[in-house]
Nucleic acid binder design. Structure first.
Length: 717
RNA sequence: GGGCGCGUAGCUCAGUGGGAGAGCGCUCGCUUCACACGCGAGAGGUCGCAGGUUCGAAACCCGCCGCGCCCACCA
């Protein structure tokens, strides 16, 4: 019998077992297997990322599900990979370059993209190395990156298919523009936040000198681009003015018509709206209906452009007070409410205030895609856990607007569209075309790239080989469970369902398990500025991966946020140590003996602990089936600590001490055997190590079966 | 403006029709031959407030108060 140290020491054990697992191909899945598949595709972390507690939570739960499924006899496949994360990665590399005083424009597009690839090759493996430290049993041979050749082909195939089917189109619209990232964003990439701004009411004089009309605005600088004034058709205050024009104070040649439109809310402000079609989506629509001019007054960095007259060159921040002062001087300001709190959009990547900006972009028509995806959630082909998230999903899906997919970035999947200089044709093609149908070879590719989420949405099938019809795709699509935080239900989950159904004809997964986010010990969001960030790798080094994983799963209730702290992880480490020492005691007591469980001479305490074990197995299985990790682990924790250790081991000691252990030896081996299996999905390392001592030569606990109750529940005292 | 969630022990939270619980913290006592990352004993809660349903409510229904989140083109 080998000596076990008095306290569990995770470091070398973890390293040793992980290498062994990878070496032996224990994580590999076989598409030719007869076993039923159980498949999870990992939500790909950003390639720029480092493992944080959010990943630790998300990944620990997936690994537990996969490991359990493997033990239950499924052909379990967990596909890992990383996301090229367009804006995030481009920002990181740009920041690096800036340290050397280099701007990406100095390099040019090709050289810059080359730099990003270099960066990816050098640092992109960081997070996947860290995932191994956590013990994740993903099939590394199937690791994918969203910019891999195969995945890029999937992106292109879907784009072209949607283009051909009329679901992808180009249009001139007011979109969300981030002047820092200098790119368009989709609606869901904008975070609304209340800001203390101002509401200014000012007056436009009628061109015929017969009076004026007042309008209210929170962005007075945009009045430089005003081309009309809108009122509600039923608003009697203004009915006499409809059809007249007002004169722009800074551009005397510009006459702004007063137009009636249903979209105006007569209750708000003065009931008259300044029409700024290039910088407000509603004004844009009203302008379309009214046929008014659209004047863009900002550059891509949100400086006033040449259309801004004497304000040209100013930043939007400087322009606001400048325009205000100028109007004041003309005596046109009527009222200023300050502070005026209202929601302002911010970039979800860099938090810069979004500028609604008129530009030509590519869009995906969502309605036709959404309908089948709505049905799938309604009829249960896709089930949300907990179910309340289905409601949020459906509400969003039923009110979808078209998705802006073009990004003015360099890092990403280039839009596979070419424009012919000679005949103006637009060509979307799987292979780069060299010649237009008209015979011209003067083709220009669209300079934009696709939204990162365009490739992410294809992840469940692109990683399995689509658009090729691979054995993996045939065996493993649709996948089984999607495990993710509620934060990205719209951004990602909904789109996977839509594109999966359209492109593959089937839902991408049957179950969506939604967990919350990890907060600090007091329930506050972790952030660098608060200094309350817990680093999972530090915790792994200090307490072991199993302790971190257990502490996370122990507090995971479907759909709820969880509060993590070093104290909790320490508590989980203590539990691991408890398990270690209980096992150590059993192993020391039994030497090389591994007595079988003998039902004939059981004492009352033997029957009691066996019945408690049965009950625990049942609870753990039932709760894990519904993703209730917290309940399952509370049952296991209390069985191991409060029952097996506190009572049974103590009661068995006299028998063990006398040498002739009798039934107690068999009972202990049996209980420990089952406990190691039950805990393996959450604590893979320590259970594997102890299993190798308890069941030498029996192979990995990964291949042991998931325990079933054995009908001993009625045998208790 | 809509929607969702939460309010249970000092702290953080499970529990959803019939025993008020866990982790951490706290008090007292233990170098007991698996474990001080431990053992034993213990203190501590009108389950936000008010009403209703029920034989029975922390849980179900209605209202109120407080907190948080999501969605939204009220300039």
């Amino acid at each position: 019998m080998t000596e076990l140290p008095k306290a569990y020491q995770p470091e070398d054990i973890e390293k040793r077992w992980y290498e062994e697992w990878e070496r032996s191909g224990a994580f590999r899945a076989d598409p030719a297997s007869d076993k039923k598949p159980y498949v999870i595709v990992l939500p790909p972390p950003n390639v720029t990322g480092a493992l944080h507690m959010g990943h630790a939570l998300n990944h620990s739960l997936q690994d537990a599900l996969i490991r359990r499924a493997r033990m239950q006899g499924f052909e379990a496949l967990w596909v890992p990979g990383t996301d090229h994360a367009g804006i995030a990665t481009q920002n990181v590399v740009e920041r690096d370059l800036r340290k050397d005083g280099v701007d990406r424009h100095d390099l040019g597009r090709e050289a810059f993209v080359e730099k990003v690839w270099e960066w990816k090759h050098e640092y992109g493996g960081r997070i996947t190395r860290q995932m191994r430290e956590l013990g994740e049993s993903c099939d590394w041979e199937r690791e994918r990156f969203t910019m891999d050749e195969g995945l890029s082909r999937a992106v292109r195939t879907v784009f072209v298919r949607w283009f051909d089917d009329g679901l992808v189109y180009r249009g001139l619209r007011v979109i969300n523009w981030c002047p820092r990232c200098t790119t368009a964003l989709s609606d869901i990439e904008v975070e609304h936040e209340d800001v203390a701004g101002e509401l200014v009411t000012f007056r436009y004089e009628l061109s015929d000198g017969s009076g004026s009309i007042s309008v209210a605005t929170t962005r007075i600088e945009t009045m430089l681009g005003d081309t009309g004034v809108f009122v509600h058709p039923d608003d009697e205050r203004y009915s006499a003015l409809v059809g007249k024009t007002v004169r722009h104070p800074f551009f005397p040649d510009r006459e702004l018509p007063i137009v009636a439109d249903e979209a105006v809310d007569p209750e708000f402000g003065t009931g008259a709206v300044k029409g700024t079609p290039a910088h407000d989506p509603v004004d844009f629509e009203m302008s379309e209906r009214a046929g008014t001019e659209k004047i863009n007054v900002f550059t891509e960095t949100a400086h006033v452009n040449e259309n801004g007259g004497r304000f040209a060159g100013m930043s939007r921040e400087d322009a606001r007070p400048a325009v205000y002062a100028a109007l004041k001087e003309l005596g046109l300001i009527e009222k200023t409410e300050r502070p005026y709190v209202h929601a302002v959009g911010h970039c979800y990547r860099c938090h810069t205030v979004i500028e609604p900006w008129l530009s030509e972009q590519w869009f995906v028509k969502m309605r036709p895609l959404a309908e089948p995806a709505i049905e799938a959630a309604k009829d249960g082909r896709v089930r949300f856990h907990p179910p309340r998230f289905a409601k949020a999903y459906l509400h969003w899906m039923e009110n979808l607007r078209d998705w802006c997919i073009s990004r003015q970035l360099w890092w990403g999947h280039r839009i596979p569209v070419w424009y012919c200089d000679d005949c103006n044709r637009t060509i979307a093609a799987l292979e780069d075309p060299t010649e237009c149908e008209c015979g011209s070879s003067s083709l220009r590719q669209d300079p934009d790239v696709l939204d990162t989420w365009f490739s992410s949405q294809l992840w469940p099938f692109s990683t399995l080989g689509s658009p090729d019809e691979t054995p993996d795709l045939a065996s493993f699509y649709p996948t089984t469970t999607m495990v993710t935080a509620y934060e990205i239900i719209y951004l990602w989950v909904a789109r996977m369902i839509m594109s999966g159904m359209y492109f593959m004809g089937e839902v991408p997964f049957s179950d969506v398990f939604i967990h919350g986010i990890v907060r600090d010990g007091e329930g506050k969001k972790m952030s660098k500025s608060l200094g309350n960030v817990v680093d999972p790798l530090e915790m792994i080094h200090r307490y072991g991966a199993d302790a971190l994983r257990f502490s996370i799963a122990f507090i995971t209730v479907p759909g709820n946020d969880s509060n993590s702290s070093e104290e909790r992880i320490e508590g989980a480490r203590n539990f691991a140590n408890k398990l270690w020492n209980a096992s150590r005691f059993v192993l020391m007591s039994l030497g090389d003996e591994r007595p079988e469980l003998d039902g004939s001479d059981l004492l009352v305490e033997d029957r009691w602990i066996l019945s408690r074990l049965d009950d625990t197995i049942e609870t753990a299985s039932r709760e894990l089936d519904v993703f209730n990790f917290s309940e399952a682990l509370h049952a296991l924790h209390s069985f191991v600590w409060s029952e097996l250790c506190d009572w049974y081991v103590e009661l068995a000691k006299p028998r063990l001490r006398d040498g002739g252990a009798g039934a107690a030896g068999g009972v202990l081996v049996h209980c420990l055997d089952r406990v190691l299996r039950l805990l393996h999905p959450v604590m893979p390392f320590i259970t594997e190590e102890l299993w190798s001592k308890l069941r030498p030569g029996a192979g990995s606990v990964m291949t042991a079966s998931w325990p079933e109750p054995e009908g001993r529940r009625d045998a208790g005292a």
